[in-house]
Amino acid sequence: MILADAGNILVWIVWVVAAFACLGSGIAVISFSNPFYSALSLIGNLASLAVLYLLLAAEFVAAAQVLVYAGAVMVMFLFVIAYLGGHADAPWAGGPSWQALWAVAASAALLVEVIVVIGLKTGGRLSHSPPTDFSFGSPATIGRLFLTDHLLAFEITSIVLLIAAVGGVILGSHSRETAAE
């Protein structure tokens, strides 16, 4: 019993640290003036999100989050930023103040919306954790859900990705032709 309590406290500590790291790195992303640091903070944000997924017993989602977003996608961001240099034109740096005002208002509205939706949807279920069995969040379970309940969303995503890939090829070949001329 004492051990179980110690485990709960540990989970709680990890949750607090990850949640604050998530918020802190999120704020850091938009407050650094150097884009390289912003990108690094975004990696930290994605990594702390992965920790939160781990606490929700979604190991596969956490690992995929790190592999795809924190790993592959952000490498591209860093690559481009490092290549262009930290002092490259930053289109949104020092924009007009009404833009900042609108941003704050919009995010406040989003926050209220999220809280209201969660409050309405969950009712009294937030106070105790739902039962999860061993296969919850395993690759096999997720794969089965993709091919049954969420088949349409899965297929649409794959088409969107295919279009993006074709677009990338077309853009790349176009710039090569103009370079050759």
């Binding site: 990594a47 690992a63 790190v66 592999l67 860093l78």
Partner: peptide
């Protein structure tokens, strides 16, 4: 862990940052 292979690749992809950030 049940997803050890993905975990290994995930750590590998994080390792790249050491090289990029160090060089930058």
């Amino acid at each position: 862990v049940s997803i050890s292979l993905i975990l290994l690749f995930a750590l590998g992809s994080l390792g790249i940052y050491g090289f990029i950030v160090g060089g930058w």
